[in-house]
Amino acid sequence: MDCQCCNRKKATVRICDLEDNSIAEQHNVCADCFALVKRYLFDMARPLAATADIVREVQSLLNADQTALALPENPGALAPIASNVPVCPECGMTLADFKARGRFGCPRDYEVFAEHLDPLFERIHDVQPPRHKGRTPDALEGRDVIVARTRQLAQLRERLEAAVREENFELAARLRDEINELQGKDITRA
């Protein structure tokens, strides 16, 4: 059978969408196209999409001859990760990115880039050491729940990356759904 994405190579991977534990839809793709598809399937920065939509998106990339853009440098990974530059695991912001834009990507960046921030903050705020002296928020109702949730999310994301690297897609899909569910909770009601 030919790959449903590129229609050229032999399909070697079958992707099944399950609904109530039975197969609702399936797609057969080649190994190369699957490398593209799985980036979409497990990219937490995107909203969850049906496989059919993802296949269509990959097809349009192929038609536009944009595969080079879509392919990660390191095929197993979700985001380009070089060990010597700090990258925020939450939002993918790099230090160079931050310096170019002058804006942080998410609150976690303050922790990830901590050792590079003091000289900048000293200059902007004309203060040494650049540490917070103002007030601290009062205890949040149910703060423990939220802290636990944030920690749990970070762990799940790490496990998801590992699962994708090891091509354990069944586990990856389960983890992805768990993350989505946890993220979607209205934590003001927690």
Binding site: G102, Y110, I124
Partner: peptide, 20 residues
């Protein structure tokens, strides 16, 4: 702040998009 989990750190205080 009692109902919204503000992004806050002991070190830098209220965390904002712009360092200013």
């Amino acid at each position: 702040e009692k109902v919204l989990p503000y992004a806050f750190s002991e070190r830098y205080g209220y965390l904002t998009a712009c360092p200013t």
